[in-house]
């Protein structure tokens, strides 16, 4: 934590000076738009009812609740990936990667510090988005608090874990936009943020299962929409944690060589 907390503080100082309110508006607007559009489609096109096929595929007939949880998870995922995965390439662009690597501090607590910033920001943003959802008439059932907490922790590990190898890819490739947007598109299609993955062909469904966000979403929905006890959500929680930790370990092993590639590319004389 000796590195994590100073990094959290540094990031807050930089963020508040660089972006102020615009930093929060972008992600929040995406979440609100997702829920708002789902609400309009549900009432204007669906006549206030989801088809039977949806209930069978999603495990719930509550379409708006399903999308609201998905939108909250999406906000959290995008925020975490954008900050944790881009932390090192941002250092590189700002000319501070070498001074960062030169210090004896380990990468994991440094990235945890960046992740904590995403986490605190997302909590506030999700509360605002949920308030909007309630305001437009989405009914959110009381969640099982223990399952919700466990799902939140597992989802945090999962998204953090997947961000670390992505960070290595970004600094190796020397670019962020193609890498991050490819992941966002893949996750949007495969993980079930706004529609059940059961609608997908089997190969894509299995591909989605390789991303820990998919099982994290199932656990979050079980906690919030189904009021499921911890034991019922445990298989998804364990899968999510195992995948997240696997990505994290691979990412941490890739990060050192990736940093050297980035520094080497910076100058070879």
């Amino acid at each position: 934590m000796a590195t994590a907390m100073p990094t959290l503080r540094r990031n807050w100082l930089v963020t508040m000076r660089a972006y102020q309110w615009t930093y929060f508006v972008g992600t929040l607007a995406t979440g609100i738009l997702t829920v708002g559009l789902a609400y309009l489609a549900y009432h204007s096109i669906g006549g206030g009812r989801a088809g039977g096929g949806f209930a069978a595929a999603a495990g719930t007939a509550d379409y708006l609740g399903y999308v609201t949880v998905g939108a909250a998870a999406s906000m959290f995922t995008v925020r975490m990936v954008l900050w944790v995965a881009k932390a090192q390439i941002t250092e590189q662009r700002e000319g501070t990667l070498e001074s960062q690597v030169l210090a004896p501090a380990r990468r994991l607590p440094y990235l945890v510090g960046v992740g904590l910033q995403s986490l605190t920001t997302t909590v506030v943003e999700v509360v605002v988005m949920l308030a909007f959802a309630v305001m437009i008439g989405v009914r959110l059932p009381a969640p099982d608090p223990v399952t919700l907490l466990a799902a939140f922790v597992a989802a945090s590990v999962a998204v953090f874990g997947i961000s670390v190898p992505l960070s290595a890819i970004m600094i190796t490739a020397g670019e962020a936009h193609i890498t991050q947007n490819t992941l966002f598109v893949a996750m949007g299609l495969l993980c079930g943020f706004t529609f059940p993955p059961a609608y997908l062909p089997d190969p894509l469904r299995w591909l989605g299962e390789a991303l820990p966000v998919t099982s994290a979403l199932r656990a979050l929905r079980a906690a919030t929409l189904d009021h499921a006890p911890l034991s019922a959500a445990a298989p998804d929680l364990l899968l999510c944690l195992a995948l997240g930790l696997a990505y994290l370990i691979v990412g941490l092993r890739l990060l050192g060589p990736a940093e050297r590639v980035a520094i080497q590319r910076g100058g070879s004389a």
């Binding site: 540094r10 700002e94 501070t96 070498e98």
Partner: peptide
């Protein structure tokens, strides 16, 4: 420690 001339190595917004 390393000090390199002409490189930033410090955070502009701090």
């Amino acid at each position: 420690n390393l000090i390199a001339g002409g490189e930033r190595m410090v955070y502009a917004r701090l």
